[in-house]
């Protein structure tokens, strides 16, 4: 074998364990889900093997699924915007702070050490009728009766922001860290105010990080099902809850498979659009 051929093979040899894992753990299960989506659930709950389009027809034509999907995308979009508005100043502060950057980053990572479910449930103790917030307001005499704050769409968004904010901050932080501060100084020396140099130099250069954080927040937010269960009211459901119900409650694995592939297709399209215009490199930096 020639040296060129050996060198050409080397990356594939090094990549093969990772490619093998991705194939076995992602593509093979996905293929199973795809096959399942064409089966049918019988009245007893058993699956009828075959090639039926009923699940797809139902998933694509039923207004119920469309409405929940739109509502899910709406909640994910609001969450992403709130994360961006809250996350950017925090990331900017960390990136420009001197000396205590490591501590601030550690504080940012701290919530990841606690289970996501526990973090979500903590809001019950904060916003509940006898929670910390109501107790404080009543002690201060601001209110005489506790306010009902939990179990609505706002608390679902609050729970999602709590969960996703660190992803946004980290991505924006990585982006800001990569900007040469001399550029801001140069803008200032040319007569720009601090605000102008931020708007015209720093913000445009950090947009890829903001977009990467936004994509992560949106995709993770749209795929969640725990938060609406814990913090939502009777009608607050997201698309992943429909998948859960189809598979677990109704034992309808074929329909659940079609619904999960539908969500995957929508979110996958967003990732592809992002990749087409911004590339995945920034996202990888943020995740790293």
């Amino acid at each position: 074998m020639s040296v060129e051929a050996r060198e050409a093979r080397q990356p594939w040899i090094l990549l093969s364990p990772a490619l093998g894992a991705v194939t076995l753990l992602l593509f093979v299960p996905l293929a199973f889900i795809l096959v399942y989506s064409f089966w049918l659930r019988t009245a007893t709950g058993a699956d009828q093997v075959g090639f039926y389009l009923e699940n797809w027809r139902e998933a694509l034509s039923d207004a119920f699924y469309r409405d929940i999907l739109i509502n899910t995308l709406k909640i994910a979009a609001i969450t992403t915007i709130v994360c961006a508005l809250m996350g950017y100043p925090a990331a900017y502060f960390i990136a420009r702070s001197k000396g205590n950057k490591a501590i601030l980053l550690l504080l940012l990572m701290l919530p990841f050490w606690i289970s996501y479910i526990i973090r979500t449930m903590s809001w019950i103790n904060i916003l509940g009728v006898s929670g910390a917030f109501n107790s404080a307001l009543m002690t201060l005499g601001v209110i005489s009766e506790p306010i009902q704050m939990l179990y609505n769409e706002t608390t679902v968004i609050l729970g999602l922001v709590h969960f996703l904010l660190p992803f946004m901050v980290l991505n924006v932080f990585v982006s800001l860290e990569g900007i040469d501060t001399n550029l801001e100084d140069a803008a200032n020396s040319l007569g720009a105010t601090k605000w102008q140099s931020f708007l015209q130099v720093t913000l445009p250069l950090s947009l890829p990080g903001l977009a990467a954080g936004g994509l992560l927040c949106f995709v993770l937010g749209a795929g969640t099902y725990i938060t609406p269960i814990v913090l939502g009211g009777p009608t607050d459901a997201m698309f992943a809850n429909l998948v859960f119900e189809a598979i677990i409650t109704q034992l309808n694995w074929p329909l659940g498979s079609a619904l999960s592939l539908m969500l995957l297709a929508v979110l996958g399209t967003l990732v592809l659009i992002y990749n087409r215009y911004l590339g995945m490199a920034q996202l990888m930096k943020g995740l790293g």
Partner: peptide, 16 residues
């Protein structure tokens, strides 16, 4: 009635 009702309840529960 399990198949029909469990599905119908899923919809009613979500505001339908």
């Amino acid at each position: 009635h399990e198949q029909e009702w469990s599905k119908q309840f899923g919809r009613v529960q979500k505001g339908y």
